[in-house]
Amino acid sequence: MRISAEELRKFTPGVRIYKGKNTLFYNGEKLWEGVVFGGPLVYDWKERQSWEVIIVLPGVKIISERTFHTCKNVKLVIMADTVKRIGEGAFYWCRKLSFIQLSRGLESIGESAFYECVSLTSIYIPLSCRTICNEAFGGCRKLIILRVPQDTQLGEQVIVRTALIQASPLDYEHSNNEEINEWIKRIDNNDEYALHRACSSFNPSTDLIYEIVKRQEIVSFQKKDERGATPLQHLNENPFVDIDQRILMKRYILEMMGESI
């Protein structure tokens, strides 16, 4: 599910069924008291466990500490582009969370913000993000794709106990934090993985992707990089993408046949 900025502006706060899912339309109110030994406000534990989707409405700038802590049945999070900061442990232990559309204006992700989100396989960080704090994605065991801009500052153990660190060529126990963070940013940086970069970018270009496919042939969509991800996987999971692979393939086949679409 991807939701445009225009559609987000039509929603009102509250909890209701949206597209068959029990959905919280969040307007920035404080939902959690305290940090480690705190507890829920506004909505009780039972209500928090009923949410399957969280949609952060326009106007919200900060998702504060522990806001959605242990909302273990939430599978999808969509953020309006007004969100600037995600606080410490904001989505801690959201164990079914598998898809996140981050704010295009996001500037920082707090410590352990997505800790133990064990169903999360990918996350694409917008260019605006300056800081990702310690263990932000720690314990996200299935996380294999973390697309990070070169200028984003990474804290310590950002990907500790994830599939991504296991797939790295580094000896985790004997590598320092700087080496690991440098590796995260240089994944897919050589020409061999140009299609991976194009499909995982913050603002993908259909024409650029098509030109790369023409050079590398259509099978390049299935080529795995060093962590095992394919360009097709990026197209399917990148929340900033709205490109239909079927249309690209049709265009490619028609051009190979001397026709045009």
Results as ranks from 00 to 15, higher is better:
Y92N: 12
D244Y: 14
L164R: 06
I243R: 06
I145A: 07
E259R: 15
P126F: 05
A90R: 01
S119I: 03
F137H: 04
A90K: 09
N177M: 07
L97N: 03
C199S: 10
V35G: 00
F202S: 12
K214W: 01
R227D: 05
G110L: 04
L195Y: 03
K142E: 14
Q49T: 10
P239V: 11
E192Y: 12
V60N: 03
V241C: 15
D81E: 08
R246L: 14
E52S: 08
S50Y: 02
A167E: 12
H69L: 11
G139P: 02
W51I: 12
I109T: 06
A198Q: 07
G110T: 01
G59Y: 02
C133P: 00
E7H: 04
R186P: 00
P239K: 13
E29S: 11
C140F: 08
Y43T: 06
S128P: 03
P231R: 02
T206A: 13
L232N: 08
D225A: 06
D207I: 14
V35Y: 14
R48F: 01
L106H: 10
N177P: 04
I243E: 10
G258L: 02
E173I: 08
V160A: 15
G14L: 09
T67I: 03
R246T: 11
F37I: 03
T23Y: 12
R2Y: 01
I165Y: 07
T162M: 04
R2C: 05
N189C: 13
V148R: 03
K46S: 05
V53A: 13
N203Y: 06
D244F: 10
E156R: 13
S122K: 05
S4M: 05
V83P: 10
L195A: 02
A229N: 05
P149Y: 04
L127Y: 02
S128N: 07
F99I: 00
T82M: 08
S50L: 05
V36G: 01
G59T: 14
C94Y: 01
G110W: 02
